[in-house]
């Protein structure tokens, strides 16, 4: 079903279309801010580290980051619950329409926001238009910075490259990147299920962040299947979506305290 989401008065239809396909719930009440998801994401998705200086300029490439804010002043000060922030895979994404070269299409098949690296020319419009600030730009060819390699018999070798996940493209300078909901794992699970002549089962696979999370705060799955764990968590009373008022239709639900 296609719904013109810009139509005034399309609210009911929006609510229906809002479900999407893949979704995530993040329980902020038990997220301990330990950064395991951040590390897991980097390891799975060949994300480059940028080094101290570029990190200082805000160029670090975390696809998922953990936010914490302060409330009050000492001694009544409180850190707000840790808030893992990643691409919300909006159903109505602000990043999509602004790309002049259509490198940020919406996947109709998987209901995800895509970033097509080979099409991206690096205008960074999408990052500027993302209200969640979850897109990061490759300011350099970080993976091949000479200081990261060793000179062996006259050639520069990069031992760290051995770790690359062959299922994920290694991004070059000048392209935008962001969380993909581990689309390579989605494809792999779908392929496996298809080869065995069945549907993908709930919990059969999960994203790298959810798999690592020691508190099990992150749950991933089909939000359009009411019986899936993520659907049930998402529809709890304490569930909340960020910046919903912008009508972005985010697919990530945050579970609050209480």
């Amino acid at each position: 079903m296609t719904v013109d989401l810009n139509l005034v008065g399309a609210k009911g239809a929006i609510a229906e279309a809002a479900e999407g396909k893949w979704g995530m719930s993040i329980d902020q009440d038990i997220c301990t801010g330990c950064q395991a998801c951040v590390a897991a994401c980097a390891m799975e998705n060949n994300i480059s580290f940028v080094g101290e200086e570029d990190a200082g300029y805000g160029r670090s490439q975390h696809w998922i980051r953990i936010e914490r804010f302060w409330e009050g002043a000492y001694p009544e000060v409180k850190a707000t619950p840790f808030q893992p922030m990643l691409c919300q895979q909006c159903g109505h994404a602000p990043c999509e329409p602004v790309c002049p070269v259509f490198a940020t299409p919406h996947s109709e098949a998987e209901q995800l926001n895509l970033q097509v690296y080979n099409r991206c020319v690096g205008t960074r419009y999408c990052a500027n238009n993302c209200p969640y600030q979850v897109r990061s730009f490759n300011w350099r060819d970080y993976h091949t910075i000479p200081e990261r390699g060793n000179m062996v018999n006259g050639t520069l070798v990069f031992p760290l490259h051995n770790q690359f996940n062959p299922d994920v493209t290694v991004r070059r300078r000048g392209v935008m990147e962001k969380c993909t909901f581990c689309i390579q794992r989605i494809h792999k699970a779908q392929d496996k299920a298809k080869s065995e002549g069945r549907e993908v089962e709930d919990g059969e696979f999960t994203t790298a962040c959810a798999q690592a999370c020691p508190a099990n705060a992150i749950t991933f799955g089909r939000v359009d299947h009411p019986e899936s764990l993520v659907s049930q968590l998402t529809h709890q009373k304490r569930g909340e979506k960020h910046l919903e008022e912008l009508n972005t239709l985010p697919r990530v639900t945050y579970l609050k305290e209480g």
């Binding site: 996947s107 098949a109 493209t169 689309i183």
Partner: peptide, 12 residues
């Protein structure tokens, strides 16, 4: 057709 012409089917 949607699945087979989706960018995300091959590019990620």
């Amino acid at each position: 057709l949607t699945k087979l012409t989706d960018c995300g089917t091959c590019h990620y």
